[in-house]
Amino acid sequence: MTHSKLSFRNVSRRFGEGEKSFLALDRLNLEIADGEFVTVVGPSGCGKSTAMNIAAGLMGVSDGEVLVDGKPVSGPGPERGVIFQQYALFPWLSVRQNVEFGLRIKGLPAAERRRISDHFIGLVGLSDFADALPKTLSGGMKQRCAIARAYAVDPTMLLMDEPFGALDALTRVHMQDQLLDTWSRERRTVFFITHDVDEAVYLANRVIVMAARPGRLHKIIPVDLPAERNEEVRLSKEFAEIRNQVWHSVYHQKPLIEA
């Protein structure tokens, strides 16, 4: 049995109190293996970000528990890298200073920080903008900076909330391949939220489909495609079939009569 890197055990999350309270996540059960790449799709408001924030240790549960490496989550930690839906760059720091933020906290010496930030800034194609402030970057560039910042601290697990949402199609494909490349080389566990069904299938070992009102697990769709993903895979018949299956389970969910 492979051990779970991340487990959701009967996790519920309720917002607000009493009459007006809202169940954002209803008894979510999910085991994500070490080194696995899962993508999460579902209609807006189905609790994807909520689940991620709980795993990140930024939000508590109302019920159930979340384990990372078998230990209950009690707060955030640098072994879990997070990329937020809103880029959350520090606007007073340059691209490089943003990328080095986590490295400073780790207490790395300047030369080492510089080497690492150079590498990741290059990886996301921002070398010419290393000294620029976030306000001068486009949405896609901000997102790439946030990605470099999360990668730089070398987390064993990445929690990504629509990280490629603001990118143009070309950059997006490039970033997807970069991510797969890093992932296959270093075997990080990835929990990746997206609205894009193609992206979900292309990247994942398993696609987690969620349903809304209340936010819950709808279906888990395994992606039986070659481990090495490339253009050929993207255009294959098998890819199209899985894609249709995911599409169907996202957009033709039967409404649940809520108790």
Binding site: P76, V82, L89, F90, F101, V153
Partner: peptide, 9 residues
């Protein structure tokens, strides 16, 4: 922003 700093350790 505070959350971003927290997840960076």
């Amino acid at each position: 922003l505070i959350n971003a700093a927290r997840v960076l350790g």
